[in-house]
């Protein structure tokens, strides 16, 4: 009985998977896109820049994602006159929240690169910018990747809080099916299995990338 219900409702559940992955992908892209400049600013920026970034990080790491979500959905975006669909609010909040964490992963990686790398690059006539782009970041990114990859399962699981503002993602759809069919456990179990499979698949992909870009004797993956 439960199985036939699952099969009937699978297309509905599947569109929830698509939305969940959409949230995660946007959040990761926003997170890296904002997190990396934040990290660079925190390492190389002036004092005001560094303090501004520290405040941003403090704010986003100090609040639960659910609270952030409500603040932005009901408060900050409407106050800015932005009437964004819930999906976009979810993606932006998860993205900024991730950026706060990712900036610290990137910052640690950048700071772990020995000063000699910068000195050598400058001694060859590279500008500071060229040295950061061609020498420091390629090394720092490799060092950051294992820590960064934690972001994927973290954002994946956290994305379910978007349920609270009505984004039709995996958990929202599951609970909608439950309220339609009155079948509880099998549906939530299916939801859980899908989350775990998504987590496993994504993490495996990241490990493959890590192996592919590994350099002999360099970084945590090196021999």
């Amino acid at each position: 009985m439960a199985l036939s219900i699952l099969i009937d409702w699978f297309p509905y559940l599947f569109s929830g998977i698509v939305l969940t992955l959409g949230l995660v992908a946007s959040a990761l892209i926003i997170g890296a896109g904002v997190g990396l400049p934040l990290a660079l600013g925190q390492v190389y920026g002036s004092l005001p820049v560094r303090s501004a970034i520290a405040t941003f990080v403090w704010f986003f790491r100090g609040l639960p994602v659910l609270v952030l979500l409500f603040l932005f959905y009901f408060g900050i975006f409407p106050a800015l006159g932005l009437d964004l669909p819930a999906f976009y609010v979810g993606a932006v909040v998860l993205g900024l929240w991730g950026a706060a964490y990712q900036s610290q992963v990137f910052r640690g990686a950048i700071q772990s690169i020995s000063e000699g790398q910068m000195i050598a690059a400058r001694s060859l006539g590279m500008s500071r910018f060229q040295a950061i782009k061609s020498i420091i970041l390629p090394q720092a990114m490799r060092i950051a990747l294992p820590g960064w990859s934690n972001q994927y399962p973290e954002i994946l699981t956290e994305s379910s809080v978007c349920y609270a503002i009505g984004v039709a993602e995996l958990l929202t759809r599951s609970s909608q099916i439950v309220s339609q069919t009155y079948v509880t456990m099998p549906i939530y179990l299916a939801c859980a299995v899908i989350f775990i499979l998504l987590s496993y698949a994504g993490t495996s992909c990241i490990h493959m990338v890590e192996k592919k870009i590994a350099i002999p004797g360099f970084g945590p993956g090196g021999s």
Partner: peptide, 22 residues
């Protein structure tokens, strides 16, 4: 900023090599 031009003209070798590890 012209220092970057002069540094090309002045090669430097360091005690700890400082090769680019990647």
């Amino acid at each position: 900023p012209r220092i970057n031009y002069f540094r090309q003209k002045i090669g430097m070798v360091f005690q700890n090599f400082f090769l680019f590890d990647h």
